[in-house]
Each structure stands twice: as C-alpha cells, then as structure tokens.
Write a protein that binds this DNA or RNA. Structure first.
Length: 599
RNA sequence: GGUCUGGUAGCUCAGUUGGAUUAGAGCAGCAGCCUUCUAAGCUGCGGGUCAAGGGUUCGAGCCCCUUCCAGAUCACCA
C-alpha cells in the first residue's frame, strides 16, 4: 500500500479519535514538503480547524503525535510550522516504494479488462484532396497520445478515423486532373499520391480564380462570378454525377482516392499512428438522413416550407441549425449523425471522444444535443477534445496563401537535421552502423517534433517556430531521450562489471534528501497519468517527464553509480536510475515518442 | 451583437483538486565547469504590478463579478 494512502487513512482515524468527526481518507490532502523545510510530506491542517476548535499549531501538533504513535513504521518524526504538519517518512518505506516502481511492469497504469469502459477516439479525419499539414500533425499526435493515456487509465480504446472522401473538393481535384493531368499517376510522376492530388487541387483553384477575374472584368459582381465560372459549374455537375453513381466518375474517384490513401498511410506510418477502424464519409452520409427523418417523425425537428429540415435549439441557448438542405442533401452535421449511428452499431460505446480543432467548438456543442435527442446514450457526455491552431512566426497557416507546413517535408527535415546534429556524437559511439545511426536520427528527430507539439497545453493556440523545433537543448524531446540513453549506458556498464539489482533492495540503506525527492517524483507518475486522463491533456505527461529528467540530471552530476564504494548505496542508486529510465520510457511512450538505447 | 477559449519574464511555455515572507523552466544575454558512469549536460547572475479593478477566506496566478485585449464561432461550406 502506498505511503500517502497509509498516512491518509491514519489521519482520518486521528480526526475521528481526537475530534470525533468522520472524514474520508480520500479527502486528506498530502503534498510534498518544500525543500526549505524538514520533512517529506506535508499535511495542511487548516481544513480541520473547525473540527478541532484549536489553533493551527496545536491541531498540527496533536495530529502529528497521533500519527507517530499510530503508524510508527511509516512516520519517523514530524515538525510543525504554523498550520503545516511536516512528516518525515521512514527510509524503509521509500526503499519499498522504489522497489515497487521499478519492478512493476506498468507502474501507474490501470489494467484494462473485459469489463472496462469502451472509449472511442476519433482523430485525424483528413480530406482526401490534399496532403497532411502541420495542423493535422498536431491532431494526429494528440489523438494518438490521448488514446494511450485513456488506455493507461483503464479504458478499452478504439481508435477511429472518419475520412472525408466525398464532396465538391474531391471533384475539383478530379476535374483538374482530367483537364491538365495527361494521365499522370504517382508511378509515372514519382510523386506521393496525396501530393499529386493536392497539386491538382491547387491547379483547379488557380484556373478558377482566373475565370472569376475574367468574369468580373466583364462587369459581373464577385458573388455571381464565383457561382457562374465554368469550372465550378462543371465541378458541381461532377458531384451530382457522383451522387447518381455514374460509373465513370465513381471509377476515377476510387482510383484517385486510392492514391491519396497510399500517401496518407506513409505519413501515418512515419508519425507512428494507426487506427482500429476507419469510416468513410461516402458510406455514412446517407445514414444521417435516415436518422434525421426519424427525428422529424418524432417531432424533434421541423420542416420549413422550402423543404429544408431544421433543429430548433433556442431552448438550449443556441440558434436554429440546418440538418437537410431544401434539395434533400445532407450537410456536415447530418453526416456526423450518420457516422455516430454506424459506430454505435459496430461498438458498444460508453464514451466518445472527438479530436477536432477548436474552430468547431460550436459544431460539437450542437452535435452533443442532437445525438442526445436522438437517443445516443453517450451523446450528452461526448467529449470534444478541442485543440488550438498552430500558428507560424509570420502569422497563421493558410493553404491559399501557401503558408502551410507540409507534414512530409517537416518529418524529413526533422530527421535529416537530427542526423546532422548527432553526427559528431554518434561517431564517438563504438560499433555503430550506418543503419543504426539513421534509426537513431529518426527516433530523435521524431521525438523532437512530437515533444515540441505535445508539451503545449492542447487547448491553446501554439506557435510553431521551425528553428526552435530543431533545437535539441532545454525542454525538448531529445534532451529527455538523451538522459534515457545515458542511464541505459550506465546499466549496461554495471552489468559488465557484474553489478546486478537484487530482487529485494537493502532496506537498511540510508537515503539522502535528493534520493528521497527523486523517489517521490517517480511515484508522482501515477498521478500525472490520472490527471492526463481526467483532463484529456497529454501535455502534463510531457512536462512531468521534463521535470523528472531535470531532477535526475542534477543527481547524475552529484553522485556516481559505478564508482560508489558502498555496495548498498550503489545498488539503490542503480535501482533508482533504472526506475527513472523506466518511467521516462513509459511516459514518452504514452506520447508516442520512442527512446533510443544509445544516442 | 450573442456564445466559447485564452492573457504569467524580451520570446516560447509550465504552474497538479486554492497553500508556506522569494511565482518556475527553456531560449536569448553574461560568468564558470569536460584527466569525472555520454557536456544534447551542470552551476551562478540579471530579467515579473501573473492584462486591470473589485469580491469570496486563515490564505488567490488558480474560484466569483466587472472591464480591457487577442482568437474562434454564430452559413442551404466541410
């Protein structure tokens, strides 16, 4: 049983014995003692003054004495400063905690069983008309990390992706390819499929704008010109043909989407993300209509004179929302309802999490209400894991202005930069092959990118500074990975010297304040995992890892493991180092960041 | 205009359910440390009215109210 739980229970017992009041052990809050005071854990007694009807110092003194007599094997001594009761924990307790941390397979994780809640996480959700960019990278990394965190918190997780594979935007690319493509394919051009399609999307836009300009030059106003341009009309015709299942249009659509998927798969693989189940909007968009008709029949929605269907959400403090156009076609909201329906048919979902940018906050507010009305039990409590936009030093990313950061380019740059950065260092390592050096560069480069993005609170808009992201000093992924590699090196050398960590650590060893503080910090990992799960916030894991590494690095400079002459101390320090490396691996693993054995 | 989210060092960000006379990191600047388990590191210095004002209490960067600033959103777009 953990130290703080034992103490919390004893405190609850003490309050009852001393003051005759019932409190739960859960409500007892212990915090780490500030370095300037003596002790390891601190109980703030202010909340109990109303029960004791005594001054803070007196109350703290009484509780302290009670604890000392009740759990002497846990509490070695205590002191009181104002309303703060500082407790010094018996060294043997720290040793056994350390042992628990480094021996447990997944310390701090809650095991997943058949009975665990089933959480579905939707993330990525790309359009199939252009390659992934930096915004998608943030989405994918957050989605993947969140899935890991939810699983570590004892949930069965299904990772899903809704691919927006139909609509006018796809038709634009198709049309441009037919018109100017000369039959170009990924094979003949050597381009990645998603980039190829993206190029034609851009080409369409360019020619389209020209047409609009020409029409405006002839005196047409802008609104009308945008609608009357021949290219856009043709694209609309193509969309109609698609909906009518025109064999030629469908065949081209399938062919081009396949190219895009092949391209996406490469990017996903490089990012290290994957999905358990992929949904396609072309399969789900019709399902939503049925659900809306159903809701209409039940009187949740109403039909206007022009035939369009609406939901009146003014009672919830929102506006009216369109669900079906007057021509009977579905809108974005309708498709999300359809997707929800299919998902619920496929899985007994207890909780649904959508990883989608914060520009859609309103959409998900509405979706939640609609799904609830339509009888989805998880609709009301659906989670919109909303993240902020990625901004660049010179402003926002705008695909039209060409100020986007392409995901594939970014990944490639990160890897080559880290290869260059580590060139001198890696050469110092013995027996390193070119393949291994390249693999290290990949792990470190991706680590830098992932950490840079995940360390920031997801809700906030973040600034992506390309120069800073490849900086490997300070609060960065490589800094943490480097510490891991150094510890692994120590463990290898210890093994060579025949030093092994025994199954039972020596409990009589004395511990320094730094060592105790490090063990406490390791123990906090469990708390960080809980918090990340309840707040849907992977960033606190990243910041936890950084703090831990910072603390270990100071330790690293003050103590040596391999040269320590006291065998018991040596073993404890070795175990401490092993535990730190284990928690780093575990923590970065939750973020989808790999660790190199050497770098 | 309505709704939502943010505002902490020159810059990028932490700050765990409200806790301790002094609010933390990194970058940038300055000064030290590689005969020492990997220096991608460590140590020190300078840098702050936690947007502003009020409130709640033993105690507020954190909770409540008002104001200011920034962003998002409120489409028969997705």
């Amino acid at each position: 049983m953990s130290i703080s739980i034992q103490i919390a229970q004893a405190v609850a017992g003490g309050i009852k014995t001393l003051y005759g009041q019932e409190i739960t052990a859960d409500s007892v809050q212990l915090q780490e003692t500030r370095p300037e005071f003596e002790g390891n854990l601190t109980l703030v007694v202010f909340p109990y003054l109303k029960m004791s009807r005594k001054r803070p110092e007196e109350t703290a003194q009484e509780i302290g004495e009670y604890l000392l007599s009740e759990v002497p094997h846990v509490i070695a001594k205590f002191n009181v400063v104002k309303g703060f009761l500082n407790l010094t924990i018996a060294p043997a307790q720290w040793i056994s905690l350390l042992q628990e941390i480094y021996q447990q397979e997944n310390f701090g994780f809650i095991p997943v069983t058949e009975a665990s809640p089933l959480v579905m996480i939707e993330y990525s959700s790309p359009n199939t008309n252009k390659p992934l960019h930096l915004g998608h990278v943030r989405n994918n990394l957050l989605g993947w990390a969140l899935a890991n965190v939810m699983e570590a918190n004892g949930n069965r997780v299904v990772k899903t992706n809704i691919v927006n594979d139909r609509g006018i935007h796809i038709c634009k690319s198709m049309l441009a390819w037919l018109r100017w493509g000369n039959g170009e394919t990924p094979e003949t051009s050597g381009k990645k499929g998603d980039h190829l399609i993206g190029d034609y999307y851009v080409a369409f836009d360019k020619h389209y704008r020209e047409e609009v300009r020409e029409l405006m030059a002839k005196g047409m106003d802008e609104e009308q010109a945008k609608q009357e341009a021949p290219l856009i009309k043709e694209a609309h015709e193509m969309l109609v043909k698609w909906e009518q299942n025109d064999p030629e249009v469908r065949a081209l659509w399938r062919r081009m989407n396949e190219w895009v998927y092949a391209g996406f798969d490469e990017t996903y693989k490089a990012l290290g993300v994957s999905f358990d189940k992929i949904y396609y909007e072309s399969d789900t968009y019709l399902e939503g209509k049925e659900k809306v008709e159903e809701g209409l029949a039940k009187g949740f929605f109403y039909r206007r004179d022009d035939g369009s269907v609406w939901a009146d959400l003014t009672a919830e403090g929102l506006d009216e929302k369109l669900l079906l156009r007057s021509d009977g076609t579905s809108v974005y909201m309708t498709q999300d309802i359809g997707t929800a329906k299919l998902r619920f048919q496929d899985y007994p979902i207890d909780k649904m999490i959508y990883v989608v940018g914060n520009e859609q906050n309103y959409h998900f507010q509405v979706l939640s209400i609609l799904l609830d009305k339509l009888g989805f039990k998880w609709g009301k409590d659906l989670v919109h894991f909303s993240y902020g936009m990625v901004e660049l030093p010179n402003g926002k990313m705008k695909s039209r202005e060409g100020t986007v950061v392409d995901a594939d380019d970014l990944i490639a740059t990160m890897i080559t930069d880290s290869r260059q950065m580590s060139a001198d260092k890696v050469n110092k390592l013995e027996n390193i092959s070119e393949e291994e050096a390249q693999e290290i560069a990949r792990i470190v480069g991706m680590g830098a990118l992932k950490y840079f993005i995940l360390k920031v609170d997801a809700r906030k808009n973040m600034l992506f500074n390309p120069e800073e992201s490849i900086d490997f000093n300070g609060n960065t992924g490589p800094f943490i990975q480097y510490t891991y590699a150094r510890i692994r090196s120590i463990l290898r050398k210890a093994k060579e010297q025949g030093i092994e960590i025994p199954t039972e650590l020596p409990t009589t060893t004395e511990l320094s304040d730094k060592e105790i503080s490090l063990i406490q910090h390791l123990n906090d990992f469990a708390q960080a995992v809980r918090q990340a799960g309840s707040d849907y916030n992977p960033s606190c894991i990243a910041n936890y890892c950084y703090d831990l590494v910072k603390e270990y690095n100071q330790f690293y400079h003050d103590f040596s493991v391999l040269k320590e002459e006291n065998k018991q101390k040596q073993i404890v320090r070795l175990a401490l180092s092993a535990a730190v490396s284990k928690i780093i691996k575990s923590g970065l693993g939750l973020l989808g960041i790999e660790v190199p054995e050497r770098m």
